[in-house]
Design a binder for these strands. Structure first.
Lengths: 180, 180
DNA sequence: TCGCACATGTAACGCGTTACATGATTAC
DNA sequence: GTAATCATGTAACGCGTTACATGTGCGA
């Protein structure tokens, strides 16, 4: 297996395991589906598509539709590569959470400022939860018979659980700040 | 205010707002306290200490103890810089969670493989929760009268809430996998 | 006709990690 | 004496983002 593939490359292989897509469509699909835990920038995406094509893990086909676009498709070799990556235990990702860092040093400023940050997060989280619930309902209808459904639901549930935990924590933190 | 400071620089200023420390001590303190949401590598830390010193945000003092070390101290200017940064609403950090990405593409491999990843996370999370609870008890004793205590407890509670949510989610996900 | 969505790419830059490099002190 | 901890730094590299660059087709 190839060891020099980046995570971006595997993300692409994964997306193409769902359906053949153009670069633009991969971006769009990721934004709709994985943006809560994974995203790619154009600057990473397009060079990687070229690279994967050269390596024979995907094939490119110019579509003859109205707009010129290259539709990429996973090859058997590409699928194998993806599968072998999926078996490897995920690396524990190092998180850098600026919000937490600022709160950790919070004693240097007024509790009001810290509370404002928390309120912001509270709001953002509520919006995210709403979106996740909508997506969930939608998925259950549109992907009723898809093999992917259980896995996609699992990732959505993750977002929901984490979101709910954040909301609970925000309330608790605001309470602590009142007496700080 | 200086706009060219990296997050590493602010993390350093923050640590020095707690107490004067050497580079090594900053690393050590971070590992013990913020590693769940923030960490720095040597390659970032030492050059930034030099830079912050030149900018007059911190001062360096060679200690005359047994081991030669440079003890850095926050200047008034440095404290101001830190405070102004703390006021800025934290950027929403873009997360790249490899575990979630692998699960999202989980249909490409057996449910057994996906379950193994989940079990791993379950275990890691339990260990983390245990450590957090220990730290919490310890903190409450050792920092009883510290101004930092409420803020440090808030960040610990975050880890605990998130950890518990992960555990709940793991169980749910494993249940979904049984029927996948 | 004007703006948005579609569509693909490159270049420069910055951040962060890893590995390298070195050496003193302390505890066993 | 030897391993772990204390202690500080540099260099190379890779990844990822942002900005740049360009152009088409469709709908209001």
């Amino acid at each position: 297996m190839m060891n020099n593939l980046t995570k971006t490359a595997f993300a692409i292989l994964g997306m193409l395991s769902i359906a053949p897509m153009s670069g633009y469509e991969i971006q769009h699909t990721m934004k709709k589906s994985t943006s809560n835990f994974w995203s790619e920038s154009d600057g990473q995406l397009y060079p990687n598509l070229t690279k994967l094509n050269k390596l024979g893990l995907i094939t490119a086909k110019e579509s003859i539709t109205a707009r010129a676009k290259k539709v990429y498709r996973l090859t058997a070799k590409g699928k194998k590569e993806l599968q072998s990556w999926l078996q490897v235990e995920p690396e524990k990702h190092v998180v850098r959470n600026e919000m937490m860092l600022k709160l950790f040093f919070g004693a240097n400023v007024s509790s009001k400022i810290n509370a404002e940050h928390l309120h912001q997060l509270q709001y953002q989280t509520k919006v995210m939860l709403q979106q996740l619930n909508e997506t969930k309902t939608q998925l259950k209808h549109e992907q009723k018979s898809s093999l992917h459904l259980p896995y996609w639901l699992i990732t959505i549930q993750y977002g929901i659980h984490i979101g709910q935990a954040k909301l609970k924590w925000c309330e608790e933190a605001l309470e602590i700040l009142k007496h700080a």
